[in-house]
Every structure is written in C-alpha cells, then in structure tokens.
C-alpha cells in the first residue's frame, strides 16, 4: 500500500462518519438512550486466574466513561490482554462484577454485550474468517442481520477510510502484516461497535501506517461515538490518548494522564518503556555534566552553557 494514497483516502473519514451518525441504524436507539448516562466499562473488584489458583488479575476496579480514549499500558505478561478479554466474556472473571454500557456481564447478556464491543487483536490472522477481505467484513455484518444494501455501503465506506479498497477481493493471507491489520480493523469498525478494544492493533504497522493509524484514532475519538481502549507500547499512541491505566503483575498500578506517565521514571520502568530519543539524549548529556535548559526534557528550545551554541542545533521537541 502506498502511504501517500492512504492518506488521501483518510481525509474523507470525518465527513463520512458524521454523515453516518445522523442516520440511526445498527444500534437500537432506545437502548442507547436508556443507558446513555452509564459509564461504558465498570469493573468492580475483578479477579481472574487461568489455573484457578495464582491470580493473573487481582482485585481490579476501574471505570471508563463513554467517549473516553484510554490506554492500557504495562510490561509483557502484566495482565493487559487478560483484562480486556474479561470485558466481553471471552474469559470469565473468578469474582467481582463487570458492567458494559450499563449492562451487567452475565451468561444471558454476553450476546448483547459482544455487539457493543469490537475487539482487534494482536495478530490479525486470528480473526480472519472470510476467503476475501470483503467477505470477512461481510461476515460480521451478516451476524448483525443487516440488509445487503447497508452491508455494501458500510463495507465500501470503512474499506476506503482504512485505505484497503483495492484489497477487498484479495485473500487475507496474501496481504502483508500491516495490510492485514487494517483489514481486521475495517471489519470491526464496519460493525459500528460502541466500545473498541485494540489489543496492540498497531504493532504490525510500519511507521507511516502508524501515523495514519494515529490520525484515524484521533478522528474516531473526536467524533465522540466510540469509546476507545487501547493496549499499546507505542509512546506516541499513549501520548495521544486521554488517560493511561498501568497494569503491573495483574493489578492496576496507576490511573493517570499520559504526560504524568512519561515523567515518572518508576512507572516507565514498571511498563518497561524508554523515553523518546531526544529525551534519552538529554539524560545522557546530563550524566556527562551538560545540563540542557530547565524546560529540557521533552519540550522547549535548549540553549547550552557551553561556548558553542551550534552543539545544540536541534529543535528540542519530538
């Protein structure tokens, strides 16, 4: 996929999503009005253990409001993916309660909840069903019992917003990693869920595609129709979100703003993250006794105490 082309197609997204929002379909309007006040996700004292003994998720309570964009961060193996699998009943909590969009997660309610929750997993291969990208997108829509016309229009709309219109007739296995990921996301978006959970969905994207991906997330967020919960190690993606939940050894270790996370060395270590390159460089220089100006780490222009100003020809922001 040529990046330039993708970006052009992306530009059409906001208007299209807006146009669509004015025509109520898919989600039952009465239901959303009824529950409009309720938070999208409420977890109360949730625990879970794969083997029934050592808790992989331990006593987690959290709530995520409608329209929020939340990042779930943490080291590999800290329980992030387990936590989100509890949210649509893929895993069943050992104790505690989970409410999604005002509906309590219990055996009879799982079907309804899964219609509200769209999940994009780490590995797109695990969620392809159709023999072509188009069929794959249609599969979810058939499950929602939409008529053919609506299905066609949604497929073309979301395929073009993700820049995969050319790939609709290809077999998913013929696509590259990044293309697969976009196809998987398109299939989920076409179902127009309220809560979108992204489990490292951008991890296979290349740099340029990741930037497009980030602007897609921004558009989705500003449109206000989706609640976004994203697991990611990508610093830029974390920074773009509104709130970060940090998982550590199955517990919720922090709930804070992205900026606060990047300032906390301890939390960064806990999440096994490193600061951006220029910040690292500033820290290294500091170790060698060269202090950038106060604003130094991450923002502002740096001037140096040393004679030669040209040592700092950098514009000091990422």
């Amino acid at each position: 996929m040529k990046a330039g082309k993708t970006r052009l197609q992306k530009k059409t997204v906001p208007t299209e999503i807006h146009g669509d929002a004015s025509t109520p379909d898919g989600i039952e309007p009465t239901e959303s009005i009824e529950n409009i006040e309720a938070d999208m996700v409420v977890m109360e004292k949730v625990s879970f253990a794969y083997d029934g003994q050592c808790a992989d998720i331990h006593n987690v309570s959290l709530s995520i409001g409608r329209g929020e964009w939340v990042t779930l961060a943490g080291a590999n193996g800290s329980g992030k993916s387990t936590l989100i699998r509890l949210m649509n009943g893929l895993l069943r909590a050992g104790s505690g309660s989970i409410t999604i969009g005002g509906t309590k997660l219990e055996p009879g309610a799982i079907g309804g909840i899964r219609q509200k929750v769209g999940m994009v997993f780490q590995n797109p291969d695990n969620q392809f069903i159709g023999a072509t990208v188009e069929e794959d997108m249609a599969f979810g829509l058939e499950g929602l019992c939409l008529d053919a016309e609506e299905m066609r229009s949604r497929i073309s709309r979301y395929a073009s917003s993700l820049g995969i219109s050319d790939l609709l007739h290809r077999h998913p296995q013929e696509l590259s990693g990044g293309q697969k990921q976009r196809a998987a996301v398109a299939a989920i978006l076409a179902m127009e869920p309220e809560l979108i959970i992204l489990d490292e969905a951008s991890s296979m994207l290349d740099e340029m595609a990741r930037r497009d991906w980030l602007s897609l997330l921004r558009e989705m967020h500003s449109e206000g129709r989706y609640t976004l919960l994203s697991i990611t190690h990508d610093a830029e993606e974390i920074a773009a979100s509104e709130r970060v939940l940090v998982m550590h050894e199955g517990k919720l270790a922090a709930d804070l703003m992205p900026g606060e996370l990047f300032r906390s060395e301890e939390l960064l270590r806990m999440c096994r993250m490193v600061p951006p390159f220029r910040t690292q460089l500033a820290l290294e220089l500091e170790k060698r006794g060269i202090r950038p100006a106060d604003a130094g780490l991450g923002s502002g222009t740096v001037n140096m105490d040393l004679e030669d100003e040209r040592i700092w020809p950098f514009s000091w922001n990422m």
């Binding site: 460089l281 220089l285 030669d308």
Partner: peptide, 15 residues
C-alpha cells in the same frame, strides 16, 4: 543516545 552524547561532549571540549 550515549554515543551521540559522548561525541557532543568531545566536540564541546575541543571547542
């Protein structure tokens, strides 16, 4: 970051 910082320090002291 460390190699670049080293190089910059050497440049600075040379200057």
């Amino acid at each position: 970051p460390s190699a670049l910082a080293d190089r910059m320090v050497r440049l600075a002291s040379a200057a």
